[in-house]
Design a protein around this nucleic acid. Structure first.
Length: 357
DNA sequence: TCTGGGGTCCTAGGACCC
DNA sequence: TCTGGGGTCCTAGGACCC
């Protein structure tokens, strides 16, 4: 009996959650991000509704740019608490319909099927629709193919102009497996793979590995020599459409906790920079404490006006939950930076002591 | 249009020890 | 005096993801 992995991905998640409480906005170009004020600098789009995307608005784009592309867009502030609550609702629904769920971020999850994956996918979509939301489902023989299948599900299911893929398509559900892997993925650039980004793709291209098919034909030893003993072979495996087939249903225990802030205007006064580092360190330490965790290491990140980003860290003499010690350490670390250029971002990250002893 | 915030994991080099 | 090889800890940086 084959085991299928299903990847569930909510459509336009944050915008869709907003539509539930403001149904009059359905079908409108809605842009969620920052405080919902496109005149605010250094804030970006977290989620654009499909109508907003038709104007060219994309996640990650500055709000100001989004407004230029879509002047009549409805800008809404981020409301994380509401999205988290919606996410829990969704995951509970998936658990009810599909059993074990591996949560992958707020609006994604993997589930498994030992029988008919299309049937399960349809049931999931129907259950999510009852929540007033919609989702796409990718079916794969592992997590990689399932995840990539969701991308096909979105592009084939959503755009009527898109020619119908015969292999495995059915409105919002798509199946990608070893059987159609080469046909559907072989000609695509390597960064179409989940885990290959722009940088790795560029380095691969320099080795004359431009497409997934090229990667499949590449020499493993060469990849290992180029990318390291772990990453190299991993890339080769990715290229062949292989991946993890196990669901991890126990919630992951965070190994770190961080907080960073891009300031609306650059900071230049070293004393002000120290004060902000102390404030951010206090906040993240308090959150750590609220979760009953203990810190082992403090890392401070500085991003200057030119986007030059560096971090320095210091191991604590012993694991501690003492806020004053953590703040003092963060200050000692920031003092090792040359603060002679305008600072646009400061961040503090705490590494956490593993929970199991 | 200048480029958010919160995560995870991997690699590499130097220090230090045997 | 012209120099080993491994293991581990620590720090810095890179890359990816949602």
């Amino acid at each position: 009996m084959p085991r299928w992995l299903l990847h569930v991905d909510l459509d336009q998640f944050q915008a869709a959650v907003e539509f539930r409480r403001r149904p009059e906005l359905r079908g409108q170009p809605v842009i969620v991000g920052g405080e919902g004020d496109p005149s605010q600098p250094r804030k970006v789009v977290t989620c654009a509704s499909y109508p907003a995307r038709a104007f060219g608005v994309r996640a990650g784009m500055p709000l100001k740019a989004a407004q230029r592309k879509c002047p009549d867009g409805v800008f809404l502030p981020l409301d994380m608490a509401t999205y988290e609550a919606a996410s829990e609702e969704i995951m509970a629904t998936l658990a009810r319909v599909a059993g074990a769920v591996e949560v992958w971020g707020m609006d994604e999850a993997f589930v498994a099927s030992d029988s008919d994956p299309w049937q399960l996918a349809a049931e999931i979509r129907s259950a999510v629709t009852e929540l007033g939301l919609t989702c796409s489902v990718g079916i794969g023989d592992n997590k990689l193919t399932a995840k990539l299948a969701t991308g096909f599900a979105k592009s084939t299911g959503k755009t009527s102009a898109e020619p119908e893929h015969d292999a495995g398509a059915a409105g919002g559900i798509f199946q990608l497996t070893a059987a159609n892997w080469t046909e559907l993925m072989g000609h695509r650039p390597t960064d179409a793979l989940w885990g290959v980004g722009a940088r790795i793709a560029k380095r691969l291209a320099e080795l004359d590995i431009a497409t997934v098919a090229d990667l499949m034909a590449a020499d493993r030893q060469r990849l290992a020599a180029e990318f390291g003993p772990n990453t190299g072979p991993y890339l080769w495996v990715l290229g062949h459409g292989k991946g993890d087939t196990e669901l991890t249903t126990t919630p992951r225990i965070p190994v770190g906790r961080s907080k960073s802030e891009t300031f609306p205007h650059d900071l230049t006064d070293p004393e002000e920079i120290r004060r902000e580092v102390a404030r951010i360190a206090t906040e993240v330490a308090e959150e750590m404490l609220a979760h009953n965790r203990v810190s082992t290491r403090v890392s401070v990140t500085v991003r200057t006006k030119t986007f030059y980003t560096r971090s320095k860290q210091r191991k604590l003499p012993q694991p501690t939950s003492d806020i004053a010690t953590i703040v003092d350490t963060a200050l000692a670390v920031i003092d090792r930076f040359d603060l002679d250029r305008p600072v646009r971002l400061l961040g503090v990250r705490l590494e956490l002591l593993p929970l199991d002893e």
